[in-house]
Design a binder for these strands. Structure first.
Lengths: 118, 118
DNA sequence: TCCATAGTTCGAGTATCGTCGAACTATCAG
DNA sequence: CTGATAGTTCGACGATACTCGAACTATGGA
């Protein structure tokens, strides 16, 4: 991961509303929850919520999947892992000082995550 | 750590220049480096650099210590740890899915978890 | 077909951020 | 004291981000 990319992820999380959304999805786990449920829990206007969801999607931190009338959003744990790895890589001039973080099982469930967002 | 506080940290890191500064300090380790060295490596105007250093300091991600004419900046690894812990806490509804991250020698602080960091 | 629900896109107003020249403070050497 | 170096603060400008009402698209049910 490059600095620019990491900065985009961090900037995406660097807003209270988006961070709250992301945390909600992290806690929800791979199952995810739908948009209106997020809006209800966070008290966000639909347009505002959609704006933030789009932002998080664009940078790859979350992904949405339509299921009939609902769109289930879920956190992309693999991206999160990469971000944390980036933040801590080469820490202290390369001396091993922290374990590798791996959130959930990111190896088996990441299938399609490429640019669906136009 | 609360969402608002975490968002501030993430926002601080969510800018390419500041992230580059922080990464430089993370790699430099606890020894830290002085401002002009950062400016040289990143090709940043003094005023701009100072602005970003102040921002990072304000949120507690780095700290500066004057040493004669130089000010040595170093990353605050404890804050970083807390941030990462926040991001991954309650992941997947509390199922243990990742090890605790501990960067460098902040272990002693995190052992005494009741202690105030700052 | 028509309506209701779920969610997105558009547009505009406001607020905040990032940059950098210039002036300023702090420290040190002579 | 004077000058040089290290770094900060100030001011102003342009750029970007956030919010939200209103209109729009997509899906499903009667």
């Amino acid at each position: 991961m490059e600095t620019l990319n990491a900065a985009e992820l961090l900037a995406a999380l660097g807003h209270e509303s988006r961070l709250a959304i992301f945390r909600l999805l992290v806690e929800a786990g791979p199952a995810g929850i739908n948009a209106s449920a997020i809006g209800e829990q966070l008290g966000m206007a639909p347009a505002t919520l959609s704006f933030h969801l789009a932002h998080l999607s664009r940078v790859g931190l979350i992904a949405g999947e339509r299921e009939s009338r609902f769109i289930h959003y879920s956190a992309n744990f693999a991206t999160m892992d990469e971000l944390i790895a980036f933040l801590t890589s080469n820490c202290c001039q390369g001396e091993a000082c922290l374990p590798k973080t791996t959130c959930c099982d990111t190896t088996k469930k990441r299938r399609a995550k490429t640019g669906k967002t136009a």
